[in-house]
Simulated scan of single mutants.
Amino acid sequence: MNTALWIAAGVLAAVALTGGVSKTFVPKAKLAATPGGGWTGDASAGFVKSLGVLELLAAVGLIVPALVDIAPVLVPITATCWVLLMIGAMITHGRRGEAKFVALNVAYLAIAAFIALGRF
């Protein structure tokens, strides 16, 4: 079970890192032109960058506390926060009629819920 939790955390951290880097460092106009990035056209640049920073922090929070065994309770807390973030993403993509991105968000939510329940 521990191995499965580490794999899940690694996968989700990679997703968070990728999304965080793109939202933080890629210009909003370029993000809006990508598949699934259309929602950024309706959001402020500050909001998009803030989400990016939160995703970068999530990537760290899913791995580092358990790896160094300092405050490992931060891992399930981070995973729970990711669940909430994915609920927001599902609502946003659902309103835009982007069913395949809603499904992707459901998958990420399930992985995060698995981590949260397994690590709490």
Rank of each mutant, 00 (worst) to 15 (best):
N2M: 11
N2S: 14
T3H: 14
A4H: 08
A4S: 14
L5M: 11
L5C: 04
W6T: 12
W6G: 01
W6H: 11
I7M: 03
I7L: 14
A8H: 01
A8C: 10
A9V: 09
A9C: 11
A9Y: 00
G10M: 07
G10D: 11
G10T: 13
G10C: 08
G10H: 10
V11S: 03
L12E: 09
L12W: 01
A14M: 13
A14N: 07
A16N: 10
L17E: 01
L17N: 04
T18I: 07
G19N: 12
G19R: 00
G19P: 05
G20W: 02
V21G: 02
S22F: 08
K23P: 06
K23S: 08
T24Y: 04
T24A: 15
T24M: 06
F25T: 13
F25Q: 11
V26C: 01
K28F: 02
K28A: 07
K28G: 00
A29I: 06
K30V: 15
L31P: 04
A32Y: 02
A32E: 15
A32D: 10
A33K: 15
T34W: 00
P35S: 10
P35R: 11
G37I: 04
W39P: 00
T40D: 07
T40E: 07
T40C: 05
G41C: 07
G41V: 10
G41S: 13
D42H: 14
D42I: 02
A43M: 15
S44C: 08
S44L: 05
G46V: 04
F47Q: 13
V48W: 02
K49F: 02
G52P: 12
G52T: 13
V53D: 05
V53Q: 01
V53E: 04
L54P: 01
L54S: 14
E55F: 00
L56K: 07
L56Q: 07
L57I: 09
A59C: 00
V60S: 00
L62Y: 02
L62G: 00
P65L: 05
L67T: 14
V68F: 12
V68P: 09
D69V: 13
I70E: 11
I70S: 09
V73D: 08
V73G: 07
L74K: 05
V75A: 02
P76M: 08
I77S: 00
T78K: 04
A79T: 11
A79V: 08
A79Q: 07
A79N: 08
T80E: 03
T80V: 14
C81I: 15
W82N: 13
W82C: 13
W82A: 10
V83Y: 03
V83L: 08
L84I: 15
L85I: 13
I87R: 02
A89C: 08
M90C: 11
M90F: 03
I91Y: 05
H93E: 06
H93Y: 06
H93A: 05
H93D: 06
G94K: 13
G94N: 13
R95T: 12
R95S: 12
G97Q: 12
G97E: 11
G97S: 09
G97P: 11
E98M: 12
K100Y: 10
F101W: 10
F101V: 00
V102Y: 03
